[in-house]
Amino acid sequence: MSKLEQLVEKLCPTGVEWKKLKKCTEMKRGTSATKRTLVEGKIPVISGGKEPAFYCDSFNREGETITIAGSGASAGYVQYWNKPIYVNDAFSIKGNEKISSRYIYHYLLNIQEEIYSTKKGGGVPHVHISSIENFEIPIPPVQVQDEIVRILDSFTELTAELTAELTYRKKQYEYYRDSLLKFGNEVPRVSLGDIATIIRGGNFQKKDFAENGIPCIHYGQIYTKYGLSTTETINFINNDAAKKSKFASQNDIVMAVTSENVEDVCKCVVWLGKEDVAISGHTAIIKHNQNAKFLAFYFRSAMFFKDKIKLAHGTKVIEVTPGKLANIKIPIPSIGEQERIADILDRFDTICNDISQGLPAEIDERQKQYEYYRDKLLTFPKAKLEV
């Protein structure tokens, strides 16, 4: 019998009390502020995203604090902090002597999807404190909470170590990628429009997805589902939706030209399937006569980044007009050299990004283990109240 099982058997064999979050934790809304109203510093400002919005020189929370993002695409995102922070477009949750903040954090991660499901609003979704304050949480004795936290933290620490190693590998990969894609004057620079035809994607939306039919790529999936290249699609559309679509052929590059940030805009995927594939709006379909992977790697490079930010426009939504991509100058070595470079970078890309092998596969496996044990360890029957 494990230590946790012994504790449960001794301290709460018939179940535990469940309470609403607002009854057993300290829940507080953030304080509205902008870069203009705060002084720049090193304290993270927590708002609607998964990363700090910016940094300032003051804080309104310290110690162990859980934050839930208030608005935007990441509204409802749960994070844990153990340092001074400034909670802005978000709200915070803190524990006390009867329920630890770290225990609450693991439990909220276990119901992350339920929190996301409370989003309200059309253009900019929001998650309000009133939407989750009535969620119930099991409250086992503190000794049980501590043992659960110890077990779950051991999984997250290992995942963090692997993620740090992967981050280091990715920095190596980016360095070698940019080194290989820098050329001297012996390699001609040509306008993308001279070697490619660039057309806008079609008009189908996610609501047009079908279980089978015409293979399709939605621009949002380029950010979340696809890597450098693919031979298969995740979704399909029917013939009626296909009629209002544009199509990519084998070796075409599909580029997403709408994003929430300038770093991600223009992310692309090479279509290597034999069958033509329907492409959604907010994309550019690049039909060319070069090595497709070489071009796709170049579109990820620091050199291309400098060019695309000149074309990017918008504030909350960043866009690049497909037609303007034609004017970007890119180096075009011989096809043989393109293939050699693409081959080298393909191997690096597999190590860093392929979820089926290497570090990404190991991280994915550890995350699945953590989620399995988290769900198992945080499941408690409700204690029967004595009459």
Score class of each variant (00 low, 15 high):
residue 53 A to E: 10
residue 291 N to S: 05
residue 264 D to G: 02
residue 256 A to H: 06
residue 262 V to I: 15
residue 308 K to N: 06
residue 173 Y to W: 13
residue 303 M to Y: 11
residue 132 I to Q: 01
residue 62 E to V: 02
residue 338 Q to K: 10
residue 185 N to G: 11
residue 306 K to H: 10
residue 378 L to V: 03
residue 295 L to T: 02
residue 385 L to Y: 03
residue 340 R to V: 03
residue 28 K to G: 03
residue 277 V to Q: 01
residue 383 A to Q: 13
residue 71 S to G: 10
residue 213 G to F: 08
residue 20 K to E: 13
residue 117 S to R: 14
residue 131 S to W: 02
residue 53 A to N: 05
residue 273 G to E: 10
residue 208 D to Q: 09
residue 135 F to E: 00
residue 100 S to E: 13
residue 321 T to V: 11
residue 312 A to T: 09
residue 285 I to S: 06
residue 293 K to R: 15
residue 119 K to S: 06
residue 99 I to M: 04
residue 339 E to H: 11
residue 107 Y to K: 04
residue 101 S to L: 01
residue 374 R to I: 11
residue 30 G to E: 05
residue 198 I to M: 00
residue 296 A to M: 09
residue 288 H to V: 07
residue 63 G to H: 10
residue 296 A to Y: 09
residue 176 Y to D: 09
residue 234 I to A: 12
residue 340 R to P: 08
residue 218 H to M: 05
residue 20 K to A: 15
residue 68 I to P: 09
residue 91 F to W: 10
residue 89 D to T: 00
residue 317 V to R: 15
residue 142 V to F: 04
residue 58 S to T: 15
residue 73 A to D: 07
residue 67 T to N: 04
residue 261 N to R: 11
residue 30 G to V: 04
residue 278 A to N: 04
residue 95 G to C: 07
residue 1 M to P: 08
residue 205 Q to V: 15
residue 365 E to L: 15
residue 119 K to W: 07
residue 326 A to T: 13
residue 375 D to R: 08
residue 184 G to K: 12
residue 1 M to Y: 01
residue 381 P to W: 14
residue 98 K to S: 12
residue 80 Y to C: 03
residue 26 E to D: 13
residue 224 T to Q: 08
residue 318 I to W: 06
residue 337 E to H: 11
residue 256 A to G: 13
residue 101 S to N: 13
residue 354 D to Y: 04
residue 371 E to T: 09
residue 322 P to L: 08
residue 27 M to S: 08
residue 284 A to M: 08
residue 385 L to D: 10
residue 84 P to K: 11
residue 351 I to F: 06
residue 252 D to E: 07
residue 72 G to P: 00
residue 128 H to K: 10
residue 43 I to W: 01
residue 217 I to P: 00
residue 242 A to S: 12
residue 53 A to P: 00
residue 106 H to I: 06
residue 237 I to Y: 09
residue 204 F to N: 12
residue 192 L to D: 02
residue 347 R to C: 05
residue 382 K to V: 15
residue 121 G to F: 06
residue 12 C to K: 03
residue 163 T to Y: 09
residue 252 D to T: 06
residue 94 K to E: 13
residue 344 I to M: 03
residue 13 P to T: 07
residue 360 P to T: 07
residue 130 S to C: 04
residue 332 I to V: 14
residue 242 A to K: 09
residue 272 L to T: 03
residue 75 A to K: 08
residue 306 K to C: 05
residue 170 K to R: 15
residue 137 I to A: 03
residue 69 A to R: 07
residue 276 D to G: 03
residue 256 A to M: 05
residue 303 M to E: 12
residue 161 E to W: 01
residue 15 G to H: 13
residue 22 K to H: 10
residue 45 V to Q: 02
residue 29 R to M: 10
residue 328 I to M: 05
residue 76 G to D: 00
residue 190 V to I: 12
residue 37 T to S: 15
residue 292 A to V: 07
residue 60 N to S: 10
residue 33 A to L: 08
residue 117 S to V: 01
residue 384 K to Y: 00
residue 229 S to I: 14
residue 336 G to W: 05
residue 40 E to D: 10
residue 278 A to C: 10
residue 266 C to P: 02
residue 260 E to K: 12
residue 204 F to R: 13
residue 277 V to C: 01
residue 47 S to L: 09
residue 61 R to H: 03
residue 220 G to K: 14
